[in-house]
Design a protein around this nucleic acid. Structure first.
Lengths: 222, 222
DNA sequence: GCGGCCTATTGATCGAGATCAAACAAGCAT
DNA sequence: ATGCTTGTTTGATCTCGATCAATAGGCCGC
C-alpha cells in the first residue's frame, strides 16, 4: 500500500510545507500511492502532513450506510492532512497514482509552539480551507445541478491555470460525491453544456475537456 | 442601528477573546444590536471580532437571486467575525436582540505577529469553524430532510447544554436556510418527530420544544 | 482479433422535497 | 378589543434530481 520511492533530494514544488517547517526540510520523505489506495483514514491518528508532487487526492466523509461526501480534491502543490486534533476527521485516497512529500505533524506543532515563522502560514492554510468549505456549503445547500457542475468546471479550470484542454483525474462518481449529486446527473449536466456549445469533449476519452465559453459558464454559476 | 449601551466593566463570559487579546482586555466595548439588524456585511472590511454576551446571530451568504445559505448560528459565548483576509466573506445579522463584546481585529493580528499566547487559540478557533463546516457539508450534500432537521435539533441541544426546554431564537426559514431546505419541509419534519413522540412543542409557541427521546433522535441522524 | 471489466451516456420512471395555496396562531401597536 | 404583520402548519400538486435499466465505448490481457 505504501511504496517508498527513490530517496534522492528533490525540489519542493512550492513553499507551503517549507514555510511551515521553518525552511529546515525536516522529516521530509517522498512517497508514492497507487490509484485508489488510502493515504489515511477517518479516525486515525494523524502522523504526517502531505503535499502533492504529482497526481490527485480526494478527502471525504462517509455515513454509516455508505453515502459519501467529498470535501475537497487536492492537486499538485496542495497541502492536506493537517489536523489540530488527535484524529483525522476524514479519509484521504489517491485518485490516480500520486507522489507526495510528507513531513511529521509533530515538527509543525513544535514550530508553532516556538512561535516559528510558519505560524502565520498555518493560520492562512486553515483559513483557506475554511473559505473553500464556506463557498461549498452555499453550493451544496442552494445551487441547482447545472450550477454545481458549472462551478466545479470553473474551479478546476482555475486551479489548473486555465489549460486549453483540462484533464480531470476523477471519475463522474467522484464529481457527483463532491457536488452532492448522482453520477447520472453530473453526466447529464455535462451533456447539456456540451450541446449548448460551452464545452467540448476532447477526443476519445470523456475526462479530457475544453471550456469553450468561460464567460457563459461563469454566467450559469450564479 | 448600532446602539452603545452602558460602558461599565463587565465580566467576559468565557476566555476565548481574552486569550486572543493576551488577557489585556484591550479595545473591548459592548454593543447591542436589535433583532434583524446587520452586524457586518459580506464584502465589508473587517474591523472587529465579536463575542456574544446574549442573544443569537446568523452568518450567511447570498446568491444574486436571493437564495441564502446560513453557515452558522452563534449563541452566547461564541466568537465570530474573525477574518484573515481584508474582507468579510459573509454577512452577520442579529436574530434577536443581541449584546456583543467586540475588540479590534488589529489587536488580534498584532498579538499573533508578536507570537502571543493567543496564537494557539486562534488556530483552534479557525480549526473548530472548519470542522463544523466539514460536517455541515456532509449534511448538505448527503442527508435527507428528516436527518438534517434531527441533526439540527441535536446540535442545538448540545450547544444549549441539554436543557429541559429548548428555546430556539431562529424561525423556520432560518433553520431551512441553514439546512438547505424550505421552511415547509422543516415544519413537516418537526411534525413527524412530534407525531412519533420524539419531541414535544412546549406550550403555545412553536419555538420552545422539548426533546423527549434523544436516543431515538441520535439514531435518525445517521 | 476476442472477452471481461470499468466508465460514461442516455432513456424511462419514481419520489423526496419544492412550490403553490389556504388557514390559523402569535405578537404587537393602536 | 381590533386590525395588521409575521410566523407556522398543513394540504395539493409539481418538478428536479434520484433511481432503475440498457447500451456503448475504452482499456487491458490474452
Amino acid at each position: 500500500m505504501l511504496v517508498r520511492i527513490n530517496a534522492a533530494p528533490r525540489m519542493q514544488i512550492d513553499g507551503q510545507l517549507a514555510a511551515l517547517a521553518g525552511e529546515r526540510m525536516m522529516s521530509c520523505c517522498e512517497f508514492r500511492y497507487r490509484r485508489g489506495f488510502e493515504i489515511f483514514g477517518e479516525g486515525e491518528e494523524p502522523e504526517y502532513v502531505y503535499q502533492i508532487i504529482s497526481g490527485a487526492v480526494r478527502t471525504y466523509k462517509l455515513l454509516p450506510d455508505g453515502r459519501r461526501q467529498i470535501n475537497a480534491f487536492h492537486l499538485p502543490g496542495d497541502m492536506f492532512g493537517f489536523e489540530n486534533e488527535t484524529i483525522h476527521r476524514f479519509t484521504a485516497e489517491a485518485i490516480v497514482e500520486t507522489n507526495v512529500h510528507l513531513m511529521r505533524r509533530s515538527s509543525i506543532l513544535e514550530a508553532v509552539r516556538n512561535g516559528g515563522a510558519g505560524t502565520k502560514d498555518l493560520i492562512k492554510f486553515v483559513t483557506q480551507n475554511l473559505q473553500h468549505a464556506e463557498s461549498h456549503m452555499l453550493l451544496l445547500g442552494r445551487k441547482t445541478s447545472l450550477e454545481r457542475v458549472t462551478a466545479f468546471l470553473l474551479e478546476m479550470d482555475e486551479r489548473l491555470q486555465h489549460p486549453d484542454v483540462m484533464i480531470l483525474p476523477m471519475n463522474r462518481r467522484d464529481i457527483a460525491d463532491y457536488l452532492g449529486l448522482t453520477l447520472e446527473t453530473v453526466s447529464r449536466a455535462l451533456s447539456i453544456l456540451r450541446d449548448e456549445g460551452l464545452l467540448r469533449f476532447d477526443g476519445n476519452t470523456q475526462r479530457r475537456l475544453e471550456l469553450v465559453d468561460r464567460g457563459a459558464l461563469a454566467r450559469i454559476d450564479a
